[in-house]
Design a binder for these strands. Structure first.
Length: 522
RNA sequence: GGGGCAUUGGUGUAACUGGUUAACACGCCGCCCUCUCAAGGCGGAGAGUAGGAGUUCAAGUCUCCUAUGCCCUACCA
């Protein structure tokens, strides 16, 4: 039977990077095995589910390049079936009506409530999960009370003796005594089916063969196994993924950590999808490096692996071919970032990887992203597409070497695409104001450059060096001053390459500008 | 309170069925290159594998205990 896996997020907010990684692992597994990757939106919590979240989840998957097969399943559509299944279990004597009045509890105190109740039970001489008074209520009485309109929840009747077990692809053999599992609620008293029931039923219906999900569901799995058994279905294989934690090893949540946990943040802050995907893949999984530089077959295509055993840069094809459930880790991974240092707003390795992709990826894959970035900042000109395409690509290729995100193209890179750019104060101070003569030297340099023919990196260098010798100043002085005049910054590519790309006309014009000196006269 | 899972430099990870001075990537520091900043090259600091006990000729790898963290324990998902 061919592999069928699913990604089943609940649309109660942005797509969390941990969920994104679950999606990625599912996708990789499906693509590697030639199986199918399905999407199911678990929108059974009507209050919290929003259409906007659903959209953002789909967008996020698309951004990461994780295409799904078949139609999206909305779990809420299946609620009637889930209800019917629960009722059927009841008829078969595998579930029962619980007429205990519903206990209302505030979300905030729920954890305390659980612990408190457990402690109380322990004090009474041990917890007995089979002590529900309605568990063995005669059928006639149960039916009568239900018919009379008394509200009830439906609970699974867990056997008194026995154990559940399953083999987790990551965590190994898992076993749990029935005594430790309560008679879980299948249907709320308002008839609403609950999570464990819905998941199991949907996974059966979608013929899921492998459930790959967060480790937070590891213990829930035992309950689900019980349901598979009650329903007479074969459980799928399970693979639980380690969690992604915050730097303090605590839970990574939007409430506490803000936008770093949201996948869309990475899109909005200039990440290349392939880079972030690559980074996520290495959180909780690592390839079997002993296989390099072997050629592996995936999707029936031979994939040439990067022969460098030290690299952690993997293309999608490489990830697909290298991925295996066996090499997923058991321990949680820390997502390292600083909440106070803006330069470390996200994991340093992710940032490095993004820079690595930006400077090494094929130019024709990068330019569309740069185009989108420039366009969003009104820096894009249609000429870049046609008559100035060569210039555009040359410029992108030049400046990408020291950029970290796509945002840099419109920020630090602004001066290459527009005459309207800002001067960095520190740069002006360091490269221009320190030497008063520059105010006259730079326009003079402009005069020289105007005569150079042709105008390019080599000729501008010759001209500048000759000029510096003539006037008796170090070439570096003029070079650094020029950089600031032409780009507003103190750092950037080799100055002569910059001259070349900015062009004679704009270079000369900017060198003659008095703007940086304006207002500095004492 | 009960149960489950985990624990290798700051972070991500490696280390075949126990076998030389615990490896790599990111980060950090230094040197080289140099017009700046990156990149690149070279080098360095940083863990004796959470702690303890045991098994063994030999333990990061096996066993037990402790600690810590995370998850579950809900008519949430």
């Amino acid at each position: 039977m061919s592999i069928r896996v699913r990604f089943a997020p609940s649309p109660t907010g942005y797509l969390h990077i941990g969920s994104a990684r679950s999606a990625l692992f599912n996708w990789l597994y499906a693509r590697k095995t030639g199986g199918l990757f399905l999407l199911r939106i678990e929108d059974t919590d009507l209050q919290r589910s929003t259409e906007a979240s659903t959209r953002s989840i789909i967008e996020g998957l698309e951004w990461l390049g994780l295409n799904y097969d078949e139609e999206i399943v909305f779990q809420s559509d299946n609620a009637p079936k889930h209800r019917a299944a629960a009722l059927k279990l009841m008829e078969e004597g595998k579930a029962y009506r619980d007429f205990t009045p519903k206990e209302e509890r505030a979300d905030a105190t729920i954890k305390e409530g659980i612990a408190e109740r457990a402690r109380a039970q322990a004090a009474e001489g041990g917890q007995d999960h089979r002590s529900n008074p309605y568990r063995d209520l005669p059928k006639e009485e149960s039916d009568r009370r239900a018919a009379a309109g008394e509200p009830f929840a439906v609970r699974l009747k867990v056997a008194r003796e026995g154990k559940t077990h399953f083999e987790d692809a990551v965590y190994g053999t898992q076993e749990r005594d029935y005594a430790e599992i309560e008679d879980l609620v299948l249907l709320r008293s308002d008839g609403h089916p609950l999570y464990n029931l819905s998941v199991v039923l949907d996974d059966i219906e979608m013929q899921i063969t492998d459930v790959i999900r967060g480790q937070d569901h590891l213990t829930n799995t035992h309950k689900q196994i019980l349901l598979y058994e009650a329903l007479g279905a074969t459980p799928p294989r399970f693979a639980h993924l380690p969690l992604i934690l915050a730097p303090n090893k605590g839970k990574l949540s939007k409430r506490k950590h803000g936008e770093v946990v949201s996948l869309t943040t990475y899109r909005d802050r200039g990440f290349v999808p392939a880079a972030f995907r690559n980074f996520l893949a290495l959180l909780g999984w690592s390839p079997d490096t002993t296989q390099y530089p072997a050629q592996i077959v995936s999707d029936h295509n031979a994939v040439e692996l990067n022969p460098d055993p030290k690299t952690e840069i993997f293309s999608l094809e490489e990830l697909k071919s290298l991925f295996s459930l066996e090499r997923i880790h058991k321990s949680n991974a820390v997502f390292n970032f600083s909440e106070t240092d803006p330069r470390q707003w996200t994991d340093a390795k992710a940032l490095w990887m993004n820079a690595e992709y930006i400077r090494t990826m094929p130019l024709d894959e990068l330019t569309p992203m740069v185009k989108a970035e420039l366009r969003a900042n009104r820096l894009w000109r249609e000429e870049y597409e046609e008559e100035e395409r060569v210039w555009f690509e040359k410029t992108v290729d030049l400046i990408r070497q020291r950029f970290f995100t796509l945002k840099d193209f419109s920020a630090q890179g602004r001066a290459y695409f527009s005459d309207d750019f800002d001067f960095d104060d520190a740069a002006v101070k360091k490269n221009l104001l320190k030497e008063p003569r520059l105010k006259e030297l730079l326009p003079a340099l402009a005069d020289r450059l105007e005569e150079v023919e042709p105008f390019n990196a080599e000729t501008s260098e010759v001209a500048l060096r000759a000029f510096s010798e003539e006037v008796g100043v170090k070439a570096g002085l003029l070079i650094n001053a020029s950089r600031t005049m032409l780009t507003g910054q103190s750092v950037g590519p080799s100055m002569f390459e910059v001259f070349d790309v900015i062009g004679r006309e704009r270079s000369v014009q900017r060198l003659r500008s008095q703007v940086p000196w304006a207002g500095t006269e004492s």
